[in-house]
């Protein structure tokens, strides 16, 4: 069961919208995953992988036309509430298309982006907000941990692979927490952990304080690009383990390789529907062949978010790939 404070979360919405959502049953609010506000479009929520529309009576409908239309005023008041009437404070986050709220909740932002020399310098006319309810599931990594630790109690470098909304970040967060605390029963040594949290999703730092429990021996590089953050961490924070989310570019891959070559264990995640899909992503090819990760965990939503579909030993796979490449 995820832990979150729904009152704190809904307080970020305009009073009209808050009223409608508070009218929903406790069961619905408990399973809420996302709230989607689009200007002059129906108010929508996502729960258990499905999208519903909230009617003006505070009920759920699958029919978009039955939904309460989010007005310009609702959206503007919500923007003012989440930014505390100070959008300029969130300028850098907004350039990346999101805001982080107290409690570690994240709001995705869409609208008209302002460009200068083909680089995003700001956003105006915000037209959509996507509130994502970050869930902290303490202990969700426990069943997996024995498979991720070597005989000396040190963790293996692990890549978590899954499509969106399957619990990658929740799992990484709990792994960071458990590695940071250590676990004598599992023979897991307490590690110095650095979380390179480019999109403030893992630790949900707000006002300099992680809103999620990422452990007592964890340093967080918040809103820091992965390549720079990983190299900074190696140079100055002496980590045993680096945890980072959503590897995607060749720069990310190169930085992870640096970390592994420096004797640091890395935990990361990547978007892919299956291992076959992952193999088709050119920028990630080096990860699959050069033993950066010892193993990969495949996740799905088959039996709810966080369903473990399998654990692959990548060192053997890399050996196999090399043999195939050499025609052995």
């Amino acid at each position: 069961m995820g832990t979150h404070n729904i009152d704190l979360f809904l307080a970020n919405l305009a009073p009209n919208l808050r009223g409608l959502l508070f009218a929903l049953s406790e069961n619905v609010l408990e399973s809420l995953e996302e709230i989607r506000l689009r200007k002059l479009r129906p108010l929508a929520i996502c729960r258990r992988g499905k999208t519903y529309f909230v009617t003006p009576n505070g009920e759920l409908s699958l029919e978009p036309t039955a939904g309460y239309l989010v007005s310009h005023g609702d959206l503007m008041v919500t923007v003012q509430l989440i930014s505390k009437s100070s959008l300029y404070v969130f300028e850098e986050e907004l350039k990346q298309g999101f805001l982080t709220l107290p409690g570690g909740y994240r709001v995705g932002v869409a609208g008209q982006f302002i460009l200068s020399n083909r680089r995003i310098i700001g956003i105006k006319e915000i037209s959509s907000l996507n509130f994502r309810l970050a869930r902290e599931i303490i202990g969700c990594a426990t069943p997996l941990l024995p498979r991720l630790v070597d005989t000396k109690g040190r963790p293996y470098s692990t890549l978590i692979v899954s499509p969106p909304q399957c619990g990658k970040t929740t799992l990484l967060r709990d792994l960071a927490r458990q590695l940071s605390y250590g676990s004598p029963s599992l023979g897991l040594v307490r590690s110095q952990v650095v979380v390179v949290d480019e999109r403030s999703e893992i630790a949900g730092v707000y006002d300099g304080v992680p809103q999620m429990d990422v452990g007592p021996c964890t340093d967080v590089l918040d809103a820091c690009p992965k390549p720079e953050g990983i190299l900074m961490a190696i140079r100055s924070l002496a980590p045993d383990v680096i945890v980072t989310d959503e590897v995607g570019t060749s720069e990310d891959v190169a930085a992870l390789q640096e970390a592994v070559n420096a004797g640091v264990r890395v935990f990361s995640s990547v978007h892919a529907g299956s291992w076959q899909e992952l193999e088709k992503r050119p920028s990630l090819q080096p990860l699959l062949t050069n033993e950066t990760f010892t193993q990969a965990v495949l996740l799905s939503r088959r039996r709810g978010p966080g369903t473990i579909e399998g654990i692959l030993r990548l060192t053997q796979l890399a050996m196999y790939n090399t043999e195939v490449a050499q025609g052995v």
């Binding site: 003012q80 009437s85 100070s86 959008l87 300029y88 300028e91 310098i121 105006k124």
Partner: peptide
């Protein structure tokens, strides 16, 4: 317009 735009515009 206070608080509604980026730092430079503010």
């Amino acid at each position: 317009h206070l608080g509604l735009t980026n730092r430079q515009d503010q």
